[in-house]
Amino acid sequence: MSGNRFNGFSNHGVGIGLRIPHYKEIFSRKPVVDWFEIISENFMCDAGRPMQVLERILEQYRVVQHGVSMYFGSVTEPDPEHIKRLKALVKRTGTPWLSDHLCWGSVDGNYTHDLLPLPYTWEAVERTVERVKRVQDTLEIPVAVENVSSYAAYNDSEMTEWEFLNEVVVRADCGILFDVNNVYVSSVNHEFDPLDYVNAIPAERVAQIHIAGHSKYEKYILDTHDHPVIDPVWTLYERAIERCGYTPTLLEWDDHIPSFDEVHGEALKANRYLNAAKKSNAAMVGAA
């Protein structure tokens, strides 16, 4: 299996995030990278260096857009300018799908620029579904929602995080950007078994997977994207691939960013699992 309707039936393999410290290396050496994920908000300007960089990248590489401030779970209305600029960027990049987070972050026009967790309530399900549907209809491409890592849980929650995710994606008929590192981080912070989460998601809706490193503190874990992927997260990834099959996979590394080769090398470790999925899929097709 390669691709589904939530990622435009794409054959994307392993990608990495496009980050400024790597520009020089990318433009001078033009390394082989299957695809880059860009942060949409970094390229929603009118012109200048960011757009020049984007044009150069688009000449050579496939790009997928990932947003950080759509805030599907925020109650107050999004800025129409945001949607307008996002749509223009979608047209420019030709991204086969677009992702943003299952969280909230703005209220009454004030932005926290953080990925704040939602209470897992039926009211939040309804609100989020409505916003996801509206964005999907406006942008006219598949939208995938990403599970966030969180450090707080609400007294008012009426279901588990994975039940909440499932309700949202089924009702909104959207995809999932499944972040296995976030599952791990949240499982430590909220004391649940991460495999319960991985085993519960509707695998057929997973458009993309995120892997990343994090920082461990005495009483909690922070999703800092500044380390290599740890073994327990690879284990979750392996299980996710078993369930989802060959899935576009992206390594996030956003702070203390090492060399391009180191980041890309870390990302390519995912091929161990993706190639196995490809082989098993080929064997199944052959047997049929």
């Binding site: 953080d114 704040l116 209470p119 450090y151 707080a152 849980a153 609400y154 007294n155 008012d156 929650s157 912070n189 909220h190 004391e191 009483k219 909690y220 922070l222």
Partner: peptide, 18 residues
């Protein structure tokens, strides 16, 4: 009122992270 504590962090400590 809004945040549940866990075995290691109080409600205040959890909100303080954000």
């Amino acid at each position: 009122k809004m945040i549940a504590p866990n075995s290691r962090l109080s409600s205040v400590e959890r909100l303080e992270l954000y």
